[in-house]
Simulated scan of single mutants.
Amino acid sequence: MSSPQAAKYLAQIIITGGQVVIRAFTRALRQEFAASQQAAQKAGGGRQGARRAAADSVTGMSLQEAKQILNISDAKDKESILNNYEHLFSVNDKSKGGSFYLQSKVVRAKERFEMDMKDSDKKTVKEET
């Protein structure tokens, strides 16, 4: 095979490979966009849904999962959240034979509640003005 032919085949391979990568990247972007739209709709739609979806993605858990982890039925009961958090955090302390993984899930659940409370506080301030 001559050198110009080899260069031609190499160029074709590079172009074809580039097209495959671009198509895959475009498809992944479309899927991610659709998934974020679905998450926002499941969270209630509109701005509120977008905030919930963002909070879910930041903490890595939904409000429902945080309720289950901290064994809370009312997300606005700050005292129960704090009491359950402190109990579960201390029980899962590594020095007491607990699980660091479970302890981190407890921390993330508390953070998720805090994010939700912060959003509701901002909403309350906006409504008052």
Results as ranks from 00 to 15, higher is better:
Lys78Ile: 11
Ile69Trp: 01
Arg52Leu: 11
Asp93Trp: 03
Ile13Ser: 05
Ile81Tyr: 05
Asp93Met: 07
Ala55Gln: 13
Lys118Asp: 14
Lys122Cys: 09
Gln38Leu: 04
Ser2Tyr: 14
Ser95Asn: 09
Phe25Asn: 08
Lys78Ser: 07
Gln38Asn: 12
Gly60Lys: 09
Asp116Arg: 10
Arg47Thr: 02
Thr26Gln: 13
Glu111Trp: 12
Gly17Pro: 10
Ile14Asn: 07
Arg108Met: 06
Asp56Lys: 14
Ala28Pro: 06
Ile69Leu: 03
Ser104Pro: 05
Gly60Val: 01
Gly44Tyr: 07
Arg108Ala: 15
Ala34Arg: 15
Ala35Gln: 14
Gln12Arg: 07
Glu86Tyr: 04
Gln37Gly: 03
Ser95Phe: 00
Asp121Phe: 04
His87Trp: 04
Lys67Phe: 01
Asn84Leu: 14
Ser95Lys: 10
Phe33Asn: 08
Gly97His: 08
Ala24Cys: 06
Ser90Arg: 15
Gln37Lys: 01
Gln5Arg: 15
Ala55Pro: 09
Tyr85Asp: 06
Arg112Val: 00
Thr26Cys: 10
Gln68Gly: 12
Glu127Met: 11
Asp93Lys: 06
Val106Gly: 02
Phe100Val: 10
Arg51Trp: 12
Ile13Thr: 03
Glu127Ser: 12
Leu10Ser: 11
Ser2Gly: 12
Ser73Asn: 09
Gln48Val: 04
Ala7Ile: 03
Lys67Leu: 00
Met115Val: 03
Gln64Glu: 04
Lys8Tyr: 04
Ala39Cys: 14
Ser3Asn: 08
Leu82Asn: 01
Glu32Arg: 15
Val106Pro: 08
Tyr9Met: 02
Ser73Lys: 13
Asn83Gly: 05
Gln12His: 09
